[in-house]
Design a protein around this nucleic acid. Sequence first.
DNA 1: CCGCATCCGATTGGATACTG
DNA 2: CAGTATCCAATCGGATGCGG
Lengths: 216, 216
Amino acid sequence: MPTRRSYRDSCAMARALDVVGERWALLVIRELLLAPQRFSELRHALPNAASNLLADRLRELEHHGVIHRRRLAWTAGPHVYELTEWGRKLEPIVLALSKWGLDAPLPPEPSSLSATSALIFLRLSVHPDPAVPEIVCRLDLDGSIWTVSKDSVKVQVQGGEPARADISIRTDPKTLGSLLADPASLDSALAEKRLNLIGNPLTLKQLLYGPGLHAL
Amino acid sequence: MPTRRSYRDSCAMARALDVVGERWALLVIRELLLAPQRFSELRHALPNAASNLLADRLRELEHHGVIHRRRLAWTAGPHVYELTEWGRKLEPIVLALSKWGLDAPLPPEPSSLSATSALIFLRLSVHPDPAVPEIVCRLDLDGSIWTVSKDSVKVQVQGGEPARADISIRTDPKTLGSLLADPASLDSALAEKRLNLIGNPLTLKQLLYGPGLHAL
DNA sequence: CCGCATCCGATTGGATACTG
DNA sequence: CAGTATCCAATCGGATGCGG
Protein backbone atom coordinates (compact mmCIF):
# COMPACT_ATOMS: atom_id res chain seq x y z
CA MET A 1 0.00 0.00 0.00
CA PRO A 2 1.84 3.10 -1.23
CA THR A 3 2.02 6.06 1.10
CA ARG A 4 -0.26 9.01 0.50
CA ARG A 5 0.99 11.59 2.96
CA SER A 6 2.37 14.94 2.00
CA TYR A 7 4.04 17.82 3.79
CA ARG A 8 1.39 20.12 2.32
CA ASP A 9 4.05 22.78 1.91
CA SER A 10 4.41 24.65 -1.39
CA CYS A 11 8.14 25.01 -0.86
CA ALA A 12 10.15 23.25 -3.55
CA MET A 13 12.16 21.32 -0.96
CA ALA A 14 9.00 19.94 0.61
CA ARG A 15 7.72 18.99 -2.83
CA ALA A 16 10.99 17.20 -3.52
CA LEU A 17 10.66 15.36 -0.22
CA ASP A 18 7.09 14.41 -1.05
CA VAL A 19 8.67 12.48 -3.92
CA VAL A 20 11.97 11.17 -2.56
CA GLY A 21 11.64 11.78 1.18
CA GLU A 22 10.01 8.52 2.20
CA ARG A 23 12.12 5.94 3.90
CA TRP A 24 14.47 4.01 1.57
CA ALA A 25 13.61 6.14 -1.47
CA LEU A 26 16.98 7.88 -1.76
CA LEU A 27 18.82 4.63 -1.17
CA VAL A 28 16.91 3.05 -4.04
CA ILE A 29 17.92 5.99 -6.20
CA ARG A 30 21.52 5.61 -5.08
CA GLU A 31 21.42 2.01 -6.23
CA LEU A 32 20.20 3.01 -9.66
CA LEU A 33 22.79 5.74 -10.21
CA LEU A 34 25.39 3.54 -11.84
CA ALA A 35 23.20 1.06 -13.67
CA PRO A 36 19.60 -0.16 -13.96
CA GLN A 37 18.81 -2.93 -11.50
CA ARG A 38 16.39 -5.77 -11.13
CA PHE A 39 14.17 -6.23 -8.11
CA SER A 40 16.30 -9.00 -6.73
CA GLU A 41 19.46 -6.97 -7.18
CA LEU A 42 17.90 -4.14 -5.20
CA ARG A 43 16.92 -6.57 -2.47
CA HIS A 44 20.48 -7.80 -2.30
CA ALA A 45 21.83 -4.26 -2.23
CA LEU A 46 19.41 -3.18 0.50
CA PRO A 47 19.12 -6.27 2.70
CA ASN A 48 17.61 -4.29 5.57
CA ALA A 49 14.67 -3.10 3.52
CA ALA A 50 11.60 -5.31 3.61
CA SER A 51 10.45 -6.51 0.21
CA ASN A 52 7.02 -4.96 0.53
CA LEU A 53 8.57 -1.58 1.28
CA LEU A 54 10.88 -1.92 -1.66
CA ALA A 55 7.91 -2.70 -3.88
CA ASP A 56 6.00 0.28 -2.45
CA ARG A 57 8.87 2.69 -2.97
CA LEU A 58 9.46 1.47 -6.52
CA ARG A 59 5.79 1.93 -7.33
CA GLU A 60 5.72 5.42 -5.86
CA LEU A 61 8.94 6.52 -7.51
CA GLU A 62 7.68 5.22 -10.82
CA HIS A 63 4.35 6.98 -10.35
CA HIS A 64 6.17 10.25 -9.66
CA GLY A 65 8.36 9.86 -12.71
CA VAL A 66 11.70 9.41 -10.96
CA ILE A 67 12.29 5.85 -12.17
CA HIS A 68 10.63 3.60 -14.68
CA ARG A 69 10.27 -0.09 -15.29
CA ARG A 70 11.62 -1.47 -18.50
CA ARG A 71 11.63 -4.93 -19.94
CA LEU A 72 14.95 -6.23 -21.15
CA ALA A 73 15.03 -8.08 -24.48
CA TRP A 74 11.87 -6.73 -26.08
CA THR A 75 9.09 -8.95 -24.69
CA ALA A 76 9.60 -11.56 -22.03
CA GLY A 77 12.81 -11.49 -20.11
CA PRO A 78 13.28 -9.79 -16.77
CA HIS A 79 12.52 -6.15 -16.15
CA VAL A 80 14.81 -3.60 -14.64
CA TYR A 81 14.25 -0.32 -12.86
CA GLU A 82 16.12 2.68 -14.14
CA LEU A 83 16.22 6.38 -13.47
CA THR A 84 14.30 8.70 -15.74
CA GLU A 85 15.92 11.86 -16.98
CA TRP A 86 14.47 13.73 -14.02
CA GLY A 87 15.68 11.06 -11.63
CA ARG A 88 19.17 11.25 -13.06
CA LYS A 89 19.29 14.88 -12.01
CA LEU A 90 19.42 13.64 -8.42
CA GLU A 91 22.92 12.32 -8.96
CA PRO A 92 24.84 15.43 -7.83
CA ILE A 93 22.52 15.75 -4.84
CA VAL A 94 23.05 12.15 -3.79
CA LEU A 95 26.80 12.57 -4.18
CA ALA A 96 26.81 15.80 -2.18
CA LEU A 97 24.73 14.26 0.58
CA SER A 98 27.07 11.26 0.60
CA LYS A 99 30.06 13.52 0.96
CA TRP A 100 28.34 15.28 3.84
CA GLY A 101 27.53 11.94 5.42
CA LEU A 102 31.18 10.94 5.55
CA ASP A 103 31.39 13.01 8.75
CA ALA A 104 28.42 11.21 10.30
CA PRO A 105 28.92 8.50 12.92
CA LEU A 106 29.20 4.94 11.68
CA PRO A 107 25.99 2.90 11.96
CA PRO A 108 25.57 0.12 14.52
CA GLU A 109 26.95 -3.21 13.45
CA PRO A 110 26.13 -5.32 11.58
CA SER A 111 25.83 -2.99 8.62
CA SER A 112 25.68 -3.69 4.92
CA LEU A 113 27.50 -2.08 2.01
CA SER A 114 26.30 -2.59 -1.53
CA ALA A 115 28.50 -2.74 -4.58
CA THR A 116 27.05 0.52 -5.86
CA SER A 117 27.76 2.24 -2.52
CA ALA A 118 31.34 1.09 -2.58
CA LEU A 119 31.76 2.32 -6.14
CA ILE A 120 30.26 5.69 -5.26
CA PHE A 121 32.62 5.87 -2.30
CA LEU A 122 35.44 5.07 -4.70
CA ARG A 123 34.38 7.85 -7.02
CA LEU A 124 34.27 10.28 -4.11
CA SER A 125 37.64 9.17 -2.76
CA VAL A 126 39.72 8.88 -5.90
CA HIS A 127 40.81 12.07 -7.59
CA PRO A 128 42.39 12.70 -10.97
CA ASP A 129 46.15 12.46 -10.82
CA PRO A 130 48.26 14.69 -13.06
CA ALA A 131 51.32 12.59 -12.27
CA VAL A 132 49.99 9.48 -14.04
CA PRO A 133 48.88 9.29 -17.67
CA GLU A 134 46.10 6.70 -17.32
CA ILE A 135 45.20 3.66 -15.27
CA VAL A 136 42.43 1.24 -16.26
CA CYS A 137 41.30 -1.36 -13.79
CA ARG A 138 38.96 -4.28 -14.30
CA LEU A 139 36.95 -4.74 -11.11
CA ASP A 140 34.96 -7.83 -10.20
CA LEU A 141 32.76 -6.79 -7.31
CA ASP A 142 30.46 -9.46 -5.92
CA GLY A 143 30.45 -11.08 -9.33
CA SER A 144 29.58 -8.10 -11.49
CA ILE A 145 32.20 -6.50 -13.67
CA TRP A 146 33.12 -2.81 -13.66
CA THR A 147 35.67 -0.67 -15.40
CA VAL A 148 37.42 1.90 -13.25
CA SER A 149 39.67 4.33 -15.04
CA LYS A 150 41.61 7.36 -13.91
CA ASP A 151 43.70 9.81 -15.84
CA SER A 152 45.02 13.29 -15.29
CA VAL A 153 41.64 14.97 -15.54
CA LYS A 154 38.87 12.52 -14.60
CA VAL A 155 37.88 9.33 -12.80
CA GLN A 156 35.28 7.04 -14.36
CA VAL A 157 33.32 4.07 -13.10
CA GLN A 158 31.35 2.19 -15.73
CA GLY A 159 29.54 -1.10 -15.83
CA GLY A 160 30.97 -3.86 -18.01
CA GLU A 161 34.30 -5.20 -19.18
CA PRO A 162 37.12 -2.83 -20.12
CA ALA A 163 38.56 -3.07 -23.61
CA ARG A 164 42.03 -3.01 -22.05
CA ALA A 165 43.17 -3.01 -18.45
CA ASP A 166 46.41 -2.40 -16.54
CA ILE A 167 45.29 -4.42 -13.56
CA SER A 168 42.37 -6.62 -12.56
CA ILE A 169 41.03 -7.05 -9.06
CA ARG A 170 38.30 -9.11 -7.47
CA THR A 171 36.87 -8.28 -4.08
CA ASP A 172 33.69 -7.50 -2.14
CA PRO A 173 32.17 -4.11 -1.30
CA LYS A 174 33.23 -4.09 2.34
CA THR A 175 36.83 -4.86 1.56
CA LEU A 176 36.84 -2.19 -1.12
CA GLY A 177 35.37 0.25 1.35
CA SER A 178 37.96 -0.43 4.01
CA LEU A 179 40.70 -0.25 1.38
CA LEU A 180 39.58 3.24 0.46
CA ALA A 181 39.20 4.34 4.06
CA ASP A 182 42.54 2.94 5.16
CA PRO A 183 45.38 2.31 2.68
CA ALA A 184 47.20 0.29 5.30
CA SER A 185 44.55 -2.44 5.06
CA LEU A 186 45.59 -3.32 1.52
CA ASP A 187 48.26 -5.81 2.52
CA SER A 188 46.07 -7.69 4.97
CA ALA A 189 43.23 -7.81 2.44
CA LEU A 190 45.61 -9.41 -0.03
CA ALA A 191 46.99 -11.78 2.58
CA GLU A 192 43.54 -12.85 3.71
CA LYS A 193 42.41 -13.38 0.11
CA ARG A 194 39.57 -10.88 0.47
CA LEU A 195 41.25 -9.08 -2.40
CA ASN A 196 42.57 -10.83 -5.47
CA LEU A 197 44.93 -8.88 -7.69
CA ILE A 198 46.33 -9.48 -11.14
CA GLY A 199 49.06 -6.99 -12.01
CA ASN A 200 51.34 -4.63 -10.18
CA PRO A 201 50.27 -3.74 -6.61
CA LEU A 202 51.89 -0.35 -7.07
CA THR A 203 49.51 0.40 -9.93
CA LEU A 204 46.58 -0.36 -7.67
CA LYS A 205 47.98 1.96 -5.01
CA GLN A 206 48.44 4.67 -7.60
CA LEU A 207 44.85 4.18 -8.73
CA LEU A 208 43.29 4.22 -5.27
CA TYR A 209 45.51 6.62 -3.38
CA GLY A 210 47.16 8.63 -6.10
CA PRO A 211 49.38 11.53 -5.11
CA GLY A 212 48.49 10.98 -1.45
CA LEU A 213 50.58 7.82 -1.63
CA HIS A 214 53.54 9.48 0.02
CA ALA A 215 51.49 9.50 3.22
CA LEU A 216 52.22 5.78 3.51
CA MET B 1 10.48 9.84 22.21
CA PRO B 2 13.28 10.31 19.67
CA THR B 3 13.63 7.72 16.96
CA ARG B 4 16.40 5.23 17.25
CA ARG B 5 16.21 3.39 13.94
CA SER B 6 19.03 3.21 11.46
CA TYR B 7 19.48 1.96 7.92
CA ARG B 8 22.40 -0.13 9.18
CA ASP B 9 24.21 0.62 5.94
CA SER B 10 27.84 1.79 6.02
CA CYS B 11 27.30 3.86 2.89
CA ALA B 12 27.85 7.56 3.53
CA MET B 13 24.46 8.44 2.08
CA ALA B 14 22.70 6.08 4.47
CA ARG B 15 24.69 7.57 7.34
CA ALA B 16 23.61 11.03 6.25
CA LEU B 17 20.00 9.86 6.14
CA ASP B 18 20.35 8.35 9.60
CA VAL B 19 20.93 11.94 10.70
CA VAL B 20 18.70 14.07 8.48
CA GLY B 21 16.45 11.48 6.84
CA GLU B 22 13.65 11.39 9.41
CA ARG B 23 10.44 13.14 8.64
CA TRP B 24 10.58 16.96 8.92
CA ALA B 25 14.32 17.01 9.62
CA LEU B 26 15.36 18.62 6.33
CA LEU B 27 12.52 21.11 6.55
CA VAL B 28 13.72 22.16 9.99
CA ILE B 29 17.18 22.62 8.53
CA ARG B 30 15.74 24.64 5.66
CA GLU B 31 14.12 26.94 8.21
CA LEU B 32 17.42 27.51 9.96
CA LEU B 33 19.38 28.27 6.80
CA LEU B 34 18.79 32.02 6.81
CA ALA B 35 18.66 32.71 10.54
CA PRO B 36 18.42 31.00 13.93
CA GLN B 37 14.82 30.42 15.00
CA ARG B 38 12.87 29.90 18.16
CA PHE B 39 10.63 26.93 18.76
CA SER B 40 7.52 28.97 18.22
CA GLU B 41 8.88 30.40 14.99
CA LEU B 42 9.56 26.90 13.73
CA ARG B 43 6.03 25.88 14.65
CA HIS B 44 4.68 28.82 12.69
CA ALA B 45 6.90 28.01 9.72
CA LEU B 46 5.92 24.32 9.74
CA PRO B 47 2.26 24.39 10.76
CA ASN B 48 1.68 20.83 9.56
CA ALA B 49 4.30 19.36 11.87
CA ALA B 50 3.04 18.27 15.28
CA SER B 51 4.81 19.97 18.16
CA ASN B 52 6.05 16.73 19.69
CA LEU B 53 7.62 15.73 16.37
CA LEU B 54 9.28 19.10 16.11
CA ALA B 55 10.66 18.70 19.62
CA ASP B 56 11.86 15.17 18.78
CA ARG B 57 13.59 16.27 15.58
CA LEU B 58 15.26 19.21 17.29
CA ARG B 59 16.57 16.94 20.03
CA GLU B 60 17.86 14.40 17.54
CA LEU B 61 19.45 16.97 15.28
CA GLU B 62 21.12 18.57 18.28
CA HIS B 63 22.31 15.19 19.53
CA HIS B 64 23.83 14.47 16.12
CA GLY B 65 25.54 17.84 16.02
CA VAL B 66 23.63 19.37 13.13
CA ILE B 67 22.03 22.15 15.16
CA HIS B 68 22.48 23.48 18.65
CA ARG B 69 20.43 25.36 21.19
CA ARG B 70 21.62 28.70 22.32
CA ARG B 71 20.24 31.14 24.81
CA LEU B 72 19.80 34.70 23.67
CA ALA B 73 20.76 37.49 26.09
CA TRP B 74 23.24 35.68 28.30
CA THR B 75 21.03 33.96 30.89
CA ALA B 76 17.27 33.96 30.84
CA GLY B 77 15.57 35.06 27.67
CA PRO B 78 14.34 32.74 24.98
CA HIS B 79 16.57 30.21 23.28
CA VAL B 80 17.03 29.75 19.58
CA TYR B 81 18.07 26.82 17.44
CA GLU B 82 20.84 27.39 14.95
CA LEU B 83 22.88 25.30 12.57
CA THR B 84 26.32 24.11 13.61
CA GLU B 85 29.20 24.38 11.21
CA TRP B 86 28.48 20.86 10.00
CA GLY B 87 24.81 21.66 9.61
CA ARG B 88 25.61 24.73 7.58
CA LYS B 89 27.29 22.49 5.04
CA LEU B 90 23.85 21.19 4.14
CA GLU B 91 22.97 24.51 2.55
CA PRO B 92 24.06 23.70 -1.02
CA ILE B 93 22.37 20.32 -0.75
CA VAL B 94 19.09 21.82 0.43
CA LEU B 95 19.26 24.39 -2.35
CA ALA B 96 20.01 21.75 -4.97
CA LEU B 97 17.17 19.54 -3.76
CA SER B 98 14.88 22.56 -3.82
CA LYS B 99 15.84 23.33 -7.38
CA TRP B 100 15.15 19.71 -8.30
CA GLY B 101 11.81 19.89 -6.52
CA LEU B 102 10.63 22.78 -8.68
CA ASP B 103 9.70 20.16 -11.28
CA ALA B 104 7.66 18.14 -8.78
CA PRO B 105 3.87 18.33 -8.72
CA LEU B 106 2.31 20.91 -6.43
CA PRO B 107 1.06 19.55 -3.12
CA PRO B 108 -2.63 19.18 -2.32
CA GLU B 109 -4.31 22.33 -1.01
CA PRO B 110 -4.27 23.80 1.51
CA SER B 111 -0.52 24.12 1.64
CA SER B 112 1.72 26.40 3.64
CA LEU B 113 4.72 28.48 2.65
CA SER B 114 7.06 29.86 5.27
CA ALA B 115 8.93 33.14 5.02
CA THR B 116 12.23 31.27 4.80
CA SER B 117 10.91 29.10 1.95
CA ALA B 118 9.80 32.13 0.01
CA LEU B 119 13.18 33.80 0.52
CA ILE B 120 14.99 30.67 -0.62
CA PHE B 121 12.74 30.56 -3.66
CA LEU B 122 13.63 34.19 -4.27
CA ARG B 123 17.31 33.43 -4.07
CA LEU B 124 16.88 30.57 -6.53
CA SER B 125 14.81 32.67 -8.93
CA VAL B 126 16.67 35.96 -8.96
CA HIS B 127 19.95 36.11 -10.80
CA PRO B 128 22.66 38.75 -10.89
CA ASP B 129 21.99 41.35 -13.53
CA PRO B 130 24.92 42.97 -15.35
CA ALA B 131 22.58 45.63 -16.73
CA VAL B 132 21.87 47.18 -13.33
CA PRO B 133 24.50 48.52 -10.90
CA GLU B 134 22.75 47.67 -7.61
CA ILE B 135 19.28 47.38 -6.13
CA VAL B 136 18.66 47.19 -2.39
CA CYS B 137 15.20 46.31 -1.17
CA ARG B 138 13.82 46.38 2.34
CA LEU B 139 11.41 43.46 2.72
CA ASP B 140 8.85 43.09 5.47
CA LEU B 141 7.71 39.49 5.30
CA ASP B 142 5.12 38.43 7.84
CA GLY B 143 6.46 41.09 10.17
CA SER B 144 10.16 40.26 10.06
CA ILE B 145 12.55 42.48 8.18
CA TRP B 146 14.97 41.34 5.47
CA THR B 147 17.42 43.00 3.18
CA VAL B 148 17.45 41.79 -0.40
CA SER B 149 20.17 43.14 -2.62
CA LYS B 150 21.21 42.40 -6.15
CA ASP B 151 24.07 43.72 -8.21
CA SER B 152 25.91 42.66 -11.31
CA VAL B 153 27.59 39.68 -9.69
CA LYS B 154 25.52 38.45 -6.74
CA VAL B 155 22.15 38.30 -5.00
CA GLN B 156 21.98 38.47 -1.22
CA VAL B 157 19.24 37.86 1.30
CA GLN B 158 20.06 38.86 4.87
CA GLY B 159 18.06 39.28 8.04
CA GLY B 160 17.62 42.76 9.42
CA GLU B 161 17.20 46.33 8.25
CA PRO B 162 19.21 47.63 5.29
CA ALA B 163 21.40 50.68 5.84
CA ARG B 164 19.96 52.15 2.67
CA ALA B 165 17.26 50.94 0.29
CA ASP B 166 15.95 51.78 -3.15
CA ILE B 167 12.52 50.35 -2.47
CA SER B 168 10.63 48.87 0.44
CA ILE B 169 7.92 46.21 0.19
CA ARG B 170 5.66 44.47 2.64
CA THR B 171 3.92 41.22 1.79
CA ASP B 172 3.38 37.62 2.87
CA PRO B 173 5.25 34.47 1.76
CA LYS B 174 2.51 33.19 -0.54
CA THR B 175 2.18 36.44 -2.40
CA LEU B 176 5.94 36.66 -2.78
CA GLY B 177 5.98 33.10 -4.07
CA SER B 178 3.31 33.75 -6.69
CA LEU B 179 5.06 36.98 -7.67
CA LEU B 180 8.23 35.06 -8.40
CA ALA B 181 6.41 32.29 -10.23
CA ASP B 182 4.31 34.64 -12.33
CA PRO B 183 5.38 38.24 -13.00
CA ALA B 184 1.91 39.03 -14.29
CA SER B 185 0.51 38.65 -10.78
CA LEU B 186 2.36 41.73 -9.56
CA ASP B 187 -0.36 44.19 -10.56
CA SER B 188 -3.18 42.24 -8.95
CA ALA B 189 -1.13 41.77 -5.78
CA LEU B 190 -0.68 45.52 -5.57
CA ALA B 191 -4.34 46.17 -6.37
CA GLU B 192 -5.53 43.69 -3.76
CA LYS B 193 -3.17 45.15 -1.15
CA ARG B 194 -1.43 41.81 -0.62
CA LEU B 195 1.70 43.67 -1.64
CA ASN B 196 2.58 47.11 -0.36
CA LEU B 197 5.29 49.01 -2.21
CA ILE B 198 7.22 52.17 -1.45
CA GLY B 199 9.28 53.32 -4.43
CA ASN B 200 9.33 52.73 -8.13
CA PRO B 201 7.46 49.60 -9.33
CA LEU B 202 9.94 49.33 -12.19
CA THR B 203 12.77 48.93 -9.69
CA LEU B 204 10.92 46.04 -8.08
CA LYS B 205 10.44 44.43 -11.49
CA GLN B 206 14.12 44.87 -12.23
CA LEU B 207 14.97 43.29 -8.90
CA LEU B 208 12.67 40.28 -9.22
CA TYR B 209 12.69 39.59 -12.94
CA GLY B 210 15.86 41.26 -14.11
CA PRO B 211 16.92 40.82 -17.73
CA GLY B 212 13.99 38.47 -18.31
CA LEU B 213 11.75 41.48 -17.99
CA HIS B 214 11.35 41.79 -21.74
CA ALA B 215 9.25 38.62 -21.57
CA LEU B 216 6.42 40.73 -20.17
C1' DC C 1 2.25 33.18 25.63
C1' DC C 2 6.35 29.81 25.13
C1' DG C 3 8.34 25.44 25.11
C1' DC C 4 7.61 21.53 25.20
C1' DA C 5 5.30 16.56 27.30
C1' DT C 6 1.55 13.27 27.24
C1' DC C 7 -2.06 10.66 25.42
C1' DC C 8 -4.22 8.22 21.63
C1' DG C 9 -6.10 6.82 17.09
C1' DA C 10 -4.38 6.44 12.37
C1' DT C 11 -0.49 5.32 9.30
C1' DT C 12 3.73 3.44 8.12
C1' DG C 13 7.56 0.43 8.59
C1' DG C 14 9.63 -4.18 9.42
C1' DA C 15 9.85 -9.28 9.54
C1' DT C 16 8.22 -13.34 7.75
C1' DA C 17 5.41 -16.28 5.00
C1' DC C 18 3.40 -17.10 0.79
C1' DT C 19 1.92 -17.08 -4.37
C1' DG C 20 2.11 -16.81 -9.65
C1' DC D 1 12.47 -14.44 -9.59
C1' DA D 2 9.38 -10.83 -8.52
C1' DG D 3 6.77 -9.47 -6.01
C1' DT D 4 1.95 -10.05 -2.25
C1' DA D 5 -0.21 -10.86 2.05
C1' DT D 6 -0.22 -10.73 6.76
C1' DC D 7 0.65 -9.34 11.23
C1' DC D 8 2.87 -6.59 14.75
C1' DA D 9 5.71 -2.79 16.36
C1' DA D 10 7.20 1.86 15.72
C1' DT D 11 6.16 6.28 14.22
C1' DC D 12 3.21 10.00 12.97
C1' DG D 13 -0.36 13.47 13.54
C1' DG D 14 -3.61 15.94 16.20
C1' DA D 15 -5.40 17.42 20.47
C1' DT D 16 -4.66 18.66 24.84
C1' DG D 17 -2.17 19.59 29.21
C1' DC D 18 0.98 22.09 31.96
C1' DG D 19 4.84 24.35 34.33
C1' DG D 20 7.39 28.63 33.88
